[in-house]
Each structure stands twice: as structure tokens, then as C-alpha cells.
């Protein structure tokens, strides 16, 4: 690792208990501990979070935008997975 080219980390912040961690941004840091501290200083200067995850950027595998349509296609022809697919006689309650 060169001294200037620190690895990239993706930062996820939980804004309060009960909510999931949400991607906030990224930063460079030499190790996980400093990544956490830098993330605190960079992304939670106004109490935006109660918990932070830092993940090495290189550890993330993303789906490709070019394959977006075929990749998600299997869900497209299955409208029966939605409750609105089904016809229910008028007046039937609690269904």
C-alpha cells in the first residue's frame, strides 16, 4: 500500500435505532479503525447517526447496469405476486 493511495471505504450510517444502515458516501483511510473515525467526523458532524459500518469498497460486488433488464426480468411477468392481482367480490371485508 502506498502512503498516499489509501484504500476506499464505503460508509453506511444508521440514523436511529430501528432503522437500517443507509449508504452515506465513501472515504479513504489506511485501516478499518481510522475509516470508522474518519466516517464519524465526515458523515455524523450533526448527530446524523447512532451506528456506522465501513466496508472496503473492493469487497462490494454490484450488478451491471447493462444487464439491468435481463437481470431483473424474472420478476416482471409474475404479477400474481402482488395482492392487487386478485379479484375479490365487493363488500368482502378484512381481506
Amino acid at each position: 500500500m502506498s502512503t498516499t493511495d489509501w484504500p476506499l471505504w464505503e460508509v453506511f450510517v444508521r440514523s436511529r435505532r430501528g432503522l437500517s444502515h443507509t449508504h452515506a458516501g465513501s472515504l479513504h483511510a489506511p485501516d478499518a479503525e481510522l475509516a470508522l473515525r474518519n466516517a464519524r467526523d465526515l458523515y455524523t458532524r450533526r448527530g446524523e447517526g447512532v451506528s456506522i459500518w465501513v466496508v472496503p469498497a473492493a469487497a462490494i460486488t454490484a450488478s451491471s447496469p447493462d444487464e439491468k433488464d435481463p437481470f431483473f426480468e424474472p420478476a416482471a411477468d409474475k404479477p400474481y405476486r402482488h395482492p392487487t392481482f386478485y379479484e375479490i367480490p365487493e363488500g368482502v371485508k378484512h381481506l
Binding site: 500500500m1 484504500p7 476506499l8 489506511p30 473492493a58
Partner: peptide
């Protein structure tokens, strides 16, 4: 941290 530099490889 040993290999942190490698697992968190640069862009």
C-alpha cells in the same frame, strides 16, 4: 492490521 490494505484495495 496485516492485510487490510489489500482487502480494501484501491480503486
Amino acid at each position: 492490521t496485516g492485510d487490510t490494505g489489500e482487502t480494501g484495495a484501491t480503486r
